[in-house]
């Protein structure tokens, strides 16, 4: 289960990543954030950047035109 959800559909790169990052930073280590991302640029870029910040992507689900990913804060 996730501790929080961010619906980033319609939010452009890199603002979607910045919002994810800020949200994660407000959370406790180990907590899980669910992020909803559009396919295309967002799903191509945001998971890479999340990984580079040291957080862990623990689950990815494709739902039609968007992705629901779960990120565990480092």
């Amino acid at each position: 289960m996730s501790d929080s959800t961010l619906d980033l559909r319609g939010v452009m790169c890199p603002i979607n990543f910045v919002k994810t990052k800020l949200k994660l930073e407000s959370m406790e280590p180990g907590e899980v954030l669910e992020v909803i991302l559009d396919s295309g640029d967002p799903i191509q870029n945001v998971p890479k950047s999340i990984k580079e910040e040291g957080h862990k992507i623990v689950e990815v689900k494709k739902e039609g035109d968007f992705f629901r990913i779960k990120v565990q804060r480092n």
């Binding site: 799903i43 689950e59 990815v60 494709k62 992705f67």
Partner: peptide, 12 residues
């Protein structure tokens, strides 16, 4: 591999 399909999306 968990079969998440992100890599297929990421490959341009």
């Amino acid at each position: 591999c968990t079969g998440c399909t992100i890599c297929a999306e990421a490959c341009k």
